[in-house]
């Protein structure tokens, strides 16, 4: 690496959709400020730099590594460890690296089930020979190797030590810009911090909040919500109350409920339990002394509780994954 006096940034993607990469570009003209500030020394999505080049970097030579995506393969784990070694500051960038994110929902299954679904059962698959990925395959030229696909999706910090977290699916660009600014000014908070406000999405939500007592849950297509009124109060499950803000309540402003990509609020152990407890406390609260009251029925209204409460945070939850079948 040449020495320019500028900071050195790296971007990497593990198990993710690519949305986080777009967010980096979403900072628009500020990308130029970033480039003025830092050299991007590694960015597989945009720049062709081989892994072995990274391996050759001196340790701690990358100032900041923005790592997005969860860890589900041997390759991702390897790169996480490598980039940790090479970086002064490692940022878990986006919901997947931070909490496991959408790929983390695969923790309701194991490798075998995932492969069966992806390579055999899904309606769009045509695979008459039932070929599934293998870690090694002999061809006349020799043995081909693929990285191992793990049973369990992990968050970045379950794999390597992480210095900062930038939540969001994807992180909103001004949060990113703020982080970059903090890096530039060397004003980063204590290590381990989440680079987002301490309050929940509700704090940024402009809707009117009156009475949280609800008795029926509606799915988004079932009603046309009043755009002025709190969605949760209208019976739509909005995870905003249990989700760290910083996003400016973007989804809610588009009349869609928050699904929780910001992760748990700072004083909660896990987002799923926090939202579950909150929602089930207010659901049916008005009718609880009545004869027809039925706790079970109220809870039955939520079809896929794990997917609802742990949409972005399953690997980071207390139980982390569905228990492996023996």
């Amino acid at each position: 690496m040449e020495k320019t006096g500028k900071l050195k940034f790296a971007f990497y993607w593990a198990a993710s959709c690519g949305g986080c990469e777009i967010t980096v570009l979403d900072v628009n003209e500020k990308i130029l400020d970033v480039l003025a500030l830092a050299d991007i020394v590694f960015w597989p999505v945009a720049i062709d730099i081989k892994y072995k080049a990274v391996k050759a970097f001196p340790d701690k030579s990358i100032d900041v590594c923005f790592f997005n995506g969860a860890i589900r393969t041997e390759e991702q784990e390897h790169m996480a460890k490598l980039l940790r070694k090479k970086s002064k500051v490692l940022i878990a960038f986006g919901s997947c690296a931070y909490q496991g994110g959408i790929p983390g929902l695969a923790n309701v299954a194991d490798k075998k089930e995932v492969f069966e679904r992806a390579y055999l059962q899904s309606p769009s698959t045509h695979n008459p020979n039932c070929v599934t990925p293998k870690t090694s395959f002999k061809v006349p030229e020799g043995e081909l190797k693929l990285p191992e696909f793990f049973d369990t999706v992990k968050t970045l910090d379950q794999t390597v030590a992480v210095d900062y977290y930038l939540p969001g699916c994807p992180p909103v660009s001004d949060q990113v810009a703020k982080a970059v600014e903090a890096i530039a000014k060397n004003e980063l908070p204590p290590k381990g911090s989440v680079l987002a406000p301490e309050k929940s999405v509700c704090d940024e939500c402009p809707r009117k909040k009156e009475d949280k007592k609800i008795s029926k849950i509606y799915r988004v297509y079932e009603i046309t919500p009043d755009p002025e009124k709190c969605l949760l109060e209208q019976g739509i499950i909005c995870i905003g109350p249990a989700t760290r803000g910083g996003c400016g309540a973007k989804c809610i402003n588009a009349n869609m409920p928050c699904t929780g990509c910001g992760g748990p609020c700072p004083n909660e152990m896990e987002q799923g339990a926090a939202m579950m407890s909150a929602l089930l406390s207010i659901l049916g609260v008005s009718g609880e002394k009545e004869l027809e009251y039925d706790a079970e029925k109220l809870a039955d209204q939520i079809r896929d509780p794990l997917g609802t409460f742990y949409k972005y945070s399953l690997p980071a939850s207390l139980l982390r994954r569905r228990i492996m079948k023996k």
Binding site: G284, A295, I302, P305, L319
Partner: peptide, 29 residues
């Protein structure tokens, strides 16, 4: 039900447990 010293805390718990049981099942427990 009806006896809660704090009027209605037990109902809140009951709903949370109903939900949590479903979640535990999804967790494979």
């Amino acid at each position: 039900p009806g006896d809660c010293h704090y009027l209605s805390g037990n109902y809140k718990l009951q709903r949370r447990v109903s939900m949590l049981k479903k979640v535990l099942e999804q967790f494979g427990l």
